[in-house]
């Protein structure tokens, strides 16, 4: 589904990613781990199309399509969705309005008509309940005055409504207490399906106790230096990142 080949990225002339390779197939959950400043968030930001990142080398194919040929919104409509580490506040714009506009934009791209209002309301109520969000959140301005945990749940709610093919979740566990983490994790787990892939970017192993990954990658200095199954995450938890660094330097 997603194929990242030899990706080199600089930010303000500073090299962040240095030849990253990653292949994700449908049905898989991948976790990218690594020390701070390794370039974890850069990867998902580049895939989503955020400004300020210069791709100097390499390709990213999504379902065989070169995503650098696609606008930000085209990528999202094709099914690439990024859950933000720091969700943005948009004063005066109702949460439900953003959700509906996003869903209808995706439907339009697929040649479908706008979702009928009753159907949409039913869908959104159902999904908010899953995320244990009070329906009043839908009527509030996007992320405005939300707590850290509420913002993260709201990101997952968007995923549940928009049903992406590849869900990228950037540090979705940061700032969450254990209860909120369980809600977020169960939301993510409900996204698991044979035709969907999930990419988790996380600093800590604890998220992976709740969302079991198929593959774990260690990102160091802009490169994936080690990959393995979920056991690798546990090993990182126990031993830290230093041994991986030493191994890769050797």
């Amino acid at each position: 589904m997603l194929e990242v080949k030899d990706l080199h990225v600089t930010v303000e002339d500073k090299a962040i990613l240095n030849g990253l390779n990653l292949t994700i197939n449908a049905g898989e959950v991948h976790a990218i781990m690594g020390p701070n400043g390794a370039g974890k968030s850069t990867l998902s930001a580049v895939i989503a199309g955020k400004d300020g990142y210069e791709v100097t080398q390499g390709t990213i194919l999504f379902e065989g399509q070169d995503i650098f040929e696609m606008e930000i919104e085209e990528r999202a409509r094709a099914g690439l969705l990024l859950g933000f580490q720091y969700p943005i506040e948009i004063p005066g714009v109702k949460n439900i309005y953003l959700l509906k506009a996003a869903l209808n934009a995706q439907r339009a791209a697929r040649g479908e008509g706008e979702i009928p209002a009753p159907e949409f309301m039913k869908l959104v109520r159902e999904k908010s309940a899953e995320m244990k969000m009070d329906p009043s959140f839908l009527q509030r301005a996007v992320n405005e005055g939300f707590s850290g945990g509420e913002k993260k749940r709201n990101e997952i709610l968007q995923m549940l409504v928009l049903q992406p093919k590849l869900a990228m979740l950037d540090e979705i566990d940061s700032g969450l207490d254990i209860d909120a983490m369980k809600v977020v994790a169960s939301g993510v787990n409900s996204l698991r399906s044979a035709d969907r892939a999930i990419l988790l970017v996380t600093h800590y192993q604890r998220l992976l106790n709740h969302i079991e990954p198929d593959r774990v990658h260690v990102l160091v200095d802009g490169r994936i230096v080690k990959s393995g199954d979920k056991e690798l995450a546990l090993e990182l938890e126990a031993r830290g990142y230093d041994w991986v660094l030493e191994e890769s330097a050797a």
Partner: peptide, 8 residues
Amino acid sequence: FYCRARGI
């Protein structure tokens, strides 16, 4: 970016 990354 936030809105566009939602397909809008």
